[in-house]
Design a protein around this nucleic acid. Structure first.
Lengths: 229, 229
DNA sequence: TAATGTGAAACACTTCACAGCG
DNA sequence: CGCTGTGAAGTGTTTCACATTA
């Protein structure tokens, strides 16, 4: 019923189920079968039933799932029935874009601390949050009780930042830096890595060249003839 | 040796191997064992050897792998020994951030077409690429021979855009929209979904509340007390 | 000798298929 | 009757362990 060892892959699917259910709920749909839900998401009905069975019995035989009940159930399982304060480390191009992104707020997360290295940015404000010197991380994070952090620093600094976050009590890291970070086993990391995603997609492409009339000739662009990862 | 059915999960690891090898190469290291490489990346030596074995024999017994040789080999396997032109659809906050991101260029990808819906943005230029009306997608993409596209539109438009991309000949999609898109089986999709990543991390957090002195009281913020996904 | 490449074993995840319930 | 929840079977992935080779 409850859970001796739930696969992480199951946990990673739950947010998709939740999002889909909430959209259905907004559309006024009241209940859904595993078949229907699976068709929307692109997974099998059996997988949905198995995934949900790790957490309890949410369905009614012959009827399917009551959408608000199931959505609330998943939300509780994921501990999303509260708001989590999040630290953001890095305030370059990427860090600023993340700081300004408002999509987390309606989804149980709020960036409530921003750390920058560049003195030029310290004191800036984003949505009422003041950008702080990164050297204060070890004081501010425990003081605010932050347990989740987003890394948006250059690859070379990512491991150092991760180590300091872990020392400050952070248990979960969303890593936008193009670097694998190593953390103790009580800390979870998710990588956001669009470059790797594109690079792996490339494998599946038909490899005939760009059309001959392409304006852009790779061989003319220094640094592109011999691409680096 | 060559490949009757290579698991996608293996393909998704190759960019990480490649990046790590190139970093070692830049550090002047000449060769590496599967043990070493695995330690850097956080995977087992056996996994690296098995993964590489799908594509050939890159190593030398007793010695390990010659770094430039292996990196070049992976690059060729992933078809990254050329530059791919990429279409970007969407020029809101997110689309603009992606358009300005320069990290793809040194990694075999260049955004060479940008499509926007908002007339206000059409005609804008980013790195010499002119923002075009999205209604021209079906003409421009085949004409330029683009096979990869990035979706950065709101969730409600994502499926429609995906359909039109597929109709235009796109074979690979990097999807930043928080929506699962369905595509024919000859098209590959990778999702970039930071919100889902955060939501799945939340599961693993100790759930004692924020510290009592937190400045931010969730219950006071409309729309946060009952979070939606 | 040190480390690869790979059968075979172990483990993990998905799907089948159906008993049982509303 | 329709659809869930779940043992059991099937598939896919990882790891073991070692023969092989530079």
């Amino acid at each position: 019923m409850s859970s001796p060892e739930i696969p992480d892959i199951v946990i990673r699917r739950l947010p998709i189920y939740l999002r889909t259910l909430r959209r259905m709920q907004d559309l006024g749909i009241e209940s859904v079968s595993s078949e229907d839900l699976g068709a929307h998401i692109g997974v099998t009905a059996a997988q949905i039933r198995r995934d949900l069975s790790y957490f309890g019995r949410f369905g009614k035989q012959g009827k399917g799932y009551d959408i608000p009940t199931l959505a609330d159930g998943i939300q509780r399982v994921l501990k999303l029935d509260r708001c989590w304060d999040v630290a953001l480390v890095g305030f370059g191009q990427l860090g600023r874009a993340i700081a300004h992104y408002r999509g987390f707020e309606s989804n149980s997360f709020r960036i409530t601390a921003i750390f920058a290295r560049n003195p030029e940015h310290i004191g800036d404000q984003v949505n009422g949050v003041v950008v702080t010197d990164e050297s204060t991380m070890e004081d501010v994070i425990p003081e605010m009780g932050l347990r989740i952090a987003i890394i948006a620093v250059p690859a070379d600094s990512a491991q150092e930042v991760a180590d300091r976050l872990v020392n400050s009590g952070v248990q979960a890291i969303l890593n936008y830096a193009p670097a694998i970070i190593r953390v103790p086993s009580h800390v979870r990391v998710r990588e956001i890595d669009p470059t790797s995603a594109l690079q792996s997609l490339s494998f599946y492409l038909d490899s005939e060249g760009q059309p001959p009339d392409s304006v852009f000739d790779t061989s003319m662009l220094p640094g592109l003839a011999e691409p680096r990862s």
